[in-house]
Design a protein around this nucleic acid. Structure first.
Lengths: 203, 203
DNA sequence: TAACGTATGTACCGAATGGTACATACTGCA
DNA sequence: TGCAGTATGTACCATTCGGTACATACGTTA
């Protein structure tokens, strides 16, 4: 709403990306962004409502990040590689830390994470699945692969955040991009394998 | 050390697995496990040292869980499927929530997560990589695939914890097991592709 | 019995918490 | 000019925080 509120929220985001929010009181946050806890209460009402505002920001940021990434051109493996490079960019790390901190509260189903939980998987998996369908995958298998690709990417980022071992994780990210578009061995699931064969024919 | 302390820690673990610990004071934890905050301080010294004890427990639990899982028999894809079934078992979910809550603090490098950070990836990735080497993978590529498999599994569990969509995630887990042992297309990396071919010959 | 280490309860401490009351600026609009 | 809405500072509130002091049980062991 208010421009002052938005500016204040901007500063809070920047500050919290360095320190997290779980252990910080509104007074500490206020001090960190150069205002008084009185102002945070004034603009957001409650500590929890401040968290809600932050969650909405992160959610919106994720959505625009996703919109940027949907570039359906080029080889599918190369699209995957670019996807990894973009989401693992070091400049995104602070925001990503915040993302996973919120995630850790979402798995306990804290009420202020409701909107986060509603979109954290679907908002990414569905466009990804649609991209795979456009490239010839069977819809059911496309959903599986999108879900796996998303989960794997997030797991790799989690690894990167804690170990910082960029080199092997870049290699693992590239490997993921290659494996994810490969057909499975024809072990039963006929629909799946014909779908991946269709995918192979294209490209 | 003390048996009373261990029993108290047991009760704390059980209680925290339902509620998390980030938002709880030692007084609330004490009330939750039927003692006084005075006793928690007595046995653990400090709130932070209580967290350290919890982290050590989770770490030890992970280690024994891993030891249980190293069953180098059978088809590699099938080993992967069993791996997923075991780590995604619903009865493990509370402990896994706690694991990811600690993880979210570890990415901010909180001091009491030191031992967690030191082992959270390597303790799993290295045995996994060794298993792949035994099955004929080139050591360098085995490390990549182990790292990817671990990250993907954790990403899938994170998805499962927040969406609860067991069916598609089981499918995605099986898909991961199949893709992870497939050779990559021969696109440059000669060492890698020969290694995976060696792996294919075996089984 | 006496002494001692482990365990536990009661009561307290100063500091910090989230939130509120109230006064007061500054702004544009009537 | 005066009034209304937004914004901000100061001061305060009851509550809770992590941690401590001190007394006191309960075995064991000497």
């Amino acid at each position: 709403m208010s421009a002052a509120r938005e500016a204040l929220l901007d500063r809070c985001m920047a500050y919290l990306q360095d320190s997290g929010f779980s252990d910080l009181s509104i007074r500490e946050i206020a001090a960190g962004v150069g205002t008084s806890h009185r102002m945070l209460i004034y603009h957001f009402g409650t500590r929890e409502q401040l968290l809600v505002a932050i969650v909405e920001r992160i959610e919106a940021a994720q959505r625009t990040a996703l919109a940027d990434l949907v570039s359906p051109e080029g080889d599918l493996t190369e699209v995957g590689r670019q996807f990894w490079r973009r989401v693992s960019d070091p400049t995104l790390a602070p925001a990503t830390r915040l993302f996973f901190e919120i995630y850790s509260h979402a798995i306990y189903r804290r009420p202020w994470t409701d909107s986060f939980r509603a979109t954290v998987v679907d908002a990414w998996a569905e466009p990804l699945a649609e991209l795979l369908v456009q490239r010839g995958f069977d819809p059911a298998e496309a959903r599986q692969r999108a879900r796996l690709g998303l989960a794997a990417t997030r797991g790799l980022i989690l690894d990167l955040l804690v170990t910082g071992e960029r080199e092997i994780l870049d290699a693992a990210g590239d490997l993921l991009s290659e494996l994810l578009v490969q057909p499975t061995r024809a072990t039963g699931s006929g629909a799946g394998s014909t779908a991946t064969l269709r995918a192979e024919e294209q490209t």
